[in-house]
């Protein structure tokens, strides 16, 4: 199982759909994608994690890194996730306070702070 990534633009947001396993081996691929988007001027990101089967702390680190990058441009990074086993990891690390987590891409795309 590898990591799959696809991006699309919805209004002023860029939606990154992630599938598969995000771990120490695959996380660099996600990091590259986020870095590339920010370098290309996409500062409002929505990371759709509905097809993610596994996420570990390396993946969390990449998401935190992405958040740091978009914030440097006054951007945003929102997550879409309804899977309890993935949400649990955000909860035990306290990251639910750091990331806005939405139940659908539509909700995330329309969200404002």
């Amino acid at each position: 199982m590898d990591l799959s990534l696809s991006t699309r633009t919805v209004g002023d947001r860029t939606v990154v759909e992630v599938g598969g396993e995000i771990d120490v081996y695959t996380a660099p691929k996600l990091r590259e994608q986020l870095v590339e988007l920010v370098n290309d001027g996409s500062y409002h990101l929505v990371v759709d994690m509905e097809s993610v089967d596994f996420l570990d702390s390396t993946g969390l680190g990449v998401l935190v890194g992405g958040l740091k990058r978009v914030r440097a441009h006054e951007g945003s990074l929102r997550l879409v996730c309804n899977q309890e086993r993935i949400l649990k990891i955000f909860r035990i690390t306290g990251l639910t306070k750091v990331f806005p987590i939405h139940t659908s891409v539509e909700e995330a795309v329309n969200a404002t702070d």
Binding site: D56, S57, T58, L60, V64, K68, I92, T93
Partner: peptide
């Protein structure tokens, strides 16, 4: 700073 070092591992 956890991005590169994965220091959240033990916390998890």
């Amino acid at each position: 700073e956890a991005e590169d070092e994965g220091t959240m591992g033990l916390a998890v």
